[in-house]
Nucleic acid binder design. Structure first.
Lengths: 336, 336
DNA sequence: TTGAAAGCGCTAACAA
DNA sequence: TTGTTAGCGCTTTCAA
């Protein structure tokens, strides 16, 4: 900035004011400064600015993975929403490891971000403590089944599973298999499964067979697991998949095998991914509201960051309602 | 830090040394400081640290989109590689807009990042100037067809298109349609198409019909465009898609219609996405080396950032070789 | 092995 | 409308 100040013959303070559109500056000096800045290719140093003003335009976003389509979509919602506010997302990936989450959080907090968006409600004790003392708005996203540190935006995965179970039962299916990921740290998938079991139990039913995978092409795994399960338990009349990709793989396999879907065999996934629209049949699913979750979380951060209302603002708690999209792979509910 | 210093009865300077594992510090004080830091929940302020040391552990990553599967994969490669180096990616999304790219770059440079990874070689003049004067290693990724500002890691999309054309011609296909995105700013898709035309021209052929889309579910668009094209130009014997998702949609449609694939009609996409593995037939494609591109770019940044060898290090230029994966939707080359 | 002084590049607060 | 002063929280450099 010193250079700009000298080149324009204006004090550093006034240069600073021009560059931030702050305070009253005469049009004459404004132009002088801007011109000097441009010809010098001056880029302000936000590190110094942030240190001096105690204001940072960075928002930390902590997610488990980038490979799982779902998180880029959330991130995309966040990024789009923040764009208009001058805030910048900084992404940290935990690979579903609580320990890594802890260190990613520590790293982020050392930049004194304007806000923090973290996937999930389950954290180590140390991570929770950091979030509680972050001195910035924190939004935990994707899940509302549990206690948040500050604000929470998400859906109830437990109820998502429950409702899907009810829909399946209402359609007259009785012998049900479950296929999912082998991920002890995927708490949302676990909660869906728990809710699902609960919903079946209410009708006196249970899951008759399960199949889990990890890694590899989800579409392919869906095929393989479906084949394995139907060979092992040919009497099943419904398969519930923990995500749409494996569900899509299962659907393709079933169609190739000539199964009567949804008559003889019903199928459902989870997430409501765009991909499903191009399949030969639309897989039943449930929208997980990913993009909207990202947007709402970003809005909360932005609102808190812009107003000086950090400490006194009450935590928000937004529960979105995932809706069942029956598609073509579940029978209509049986009457009476 | 002042608190830690007081609580441990050690000078701020020594606290700083302990917290950074720098210089010789007696085990006694080390423990005292660490303990004080832990009980106080102290998180160092990297803003102040960066300002004082003129060192930042942030790496700017500028990509056009997060919705297009491809970029999260690149990002994932970058993130994985940086993890081990203590560097942190900061993502900026341009939505394929050169003007937005310019402002995202400006924003990033104001944080004085340790390095910059930018998708593509096409930038506004101002953006180029910023990159050239970034004072940090810059890696332009995905594309090598053109001049880079500093280092470049990618593939030749022109040659990718060219080679696919050669393979198609070699397999005896003659009446070829092209289906792609309607995106003037997607220079890589444009270059592939140019290379493709060139390859066909070398055999005295041309593209007989084209179809472009924008927005919506790529799989579904692939179906719709394929149907439209085959109704309009039923004599086509090959369809080249600018990405695998629309190719997959096209493949599903063709199979449903009972087309003899690859006998009567050949198909090929681009990217080599994992998804293809679970389709009824493997779509011919070409690996775009996305993850490796991200990794290599991150390696270059990391190497430059760690050594003090910023200014003097020669730019690297890494061209990866995409390989055709013929899958099941292109005939074997016809003999002699 | 430890500490003291100076200052990184900017902005808040106040003065002119 | 503009300028001056002080200092953000750390690290570099030098001295002890």
């Amino acid at each position: 900035m010193r250079d700009v100040s000298e080149a324009s013959g204006v004090s550093e303070m006034t240069v600073s004011r021009v560059l931030r559109n702050r305070g009253d500056v005469s049009e004459t000096t404004r132009i002088k400064v801007l011109e000097a800045a441009r010809t010098l290719g001056y880029v302000p140093n936000k590190i110094a600015g942030a240190l001096a003003s105690q204001r940072v335009n960075l928002v930390g976003v902590v997610i488990p993975s980038l490979s799982n389509l779902v998180f880029p979509e959330v991130l995309s919602g966040i990024s789009a929403e923040l764009d208009e506010t001058g805030l910048q997302p900084v992404v940290g990936v935990t690979n579903y490891s609580p320990a890594r989450e802890e260190s990613v959080l520590y790293e982020m907090l050392s930049w004194r971000p304007a806000g923090l968006v973290v996937a999930g409600l389950e954290h180590t004790e140390a991570a929770r403590a950091m979030l509680a003392n972050a001195g910035a708005p924190v939004v935990e996203i994707m899940d509302v089944d549990g206690e948040g540190v500050d604000s929470v935006v998400g859906i109830s995965h437990r109820r998502a599973g429950l409702h899907m179970a009810e829909a399946i039962v209402a359609s007259g299916y009785r012998r049900i298999g479950f296929l999912g990921t082998k991920m002890p740290e995927d708490h949302r998938a676990r909660k869906r499964l728990e809710g699902f079991r609960e919903g079946l139990a209410a009708a006196g039913l249970g899951i008759e067979d399960t199949e889990f995978y990890s890694g590899g092409s989800a579409l392919l795994k869906g095929r393989e697991m479906t084949e394995a399960m139907m060979r092992r338990s040919p009497d099943l009349d419904f398969l519930y998949y923990s995500n749409d990709m494996i569900g899509a793989g299962g659907l393709l396999w079933c169609l190739e095998q000539g199964y009567d879907v949804p008559g003889r065999l019903g199928l459902a996934g989870f997430n409501g991914v765009e991909l499903l629209q191009g399949l030969p049949r639309r897989l039943a699913t449930m929208d997980s509201c990913r993009r909207e979750i990202g947007q709402r979380a970003a809005q909360i951060i932005a609102a808190r960051a812009c107003e000086g209302a950090s400490a006194d603002a009450a935590p928000e708690r937004i529960e979105l309602e995932p809706v069942i999209q029956p598609g073509d792979t579940i029978r209509p509910p049986s009457r009476g």
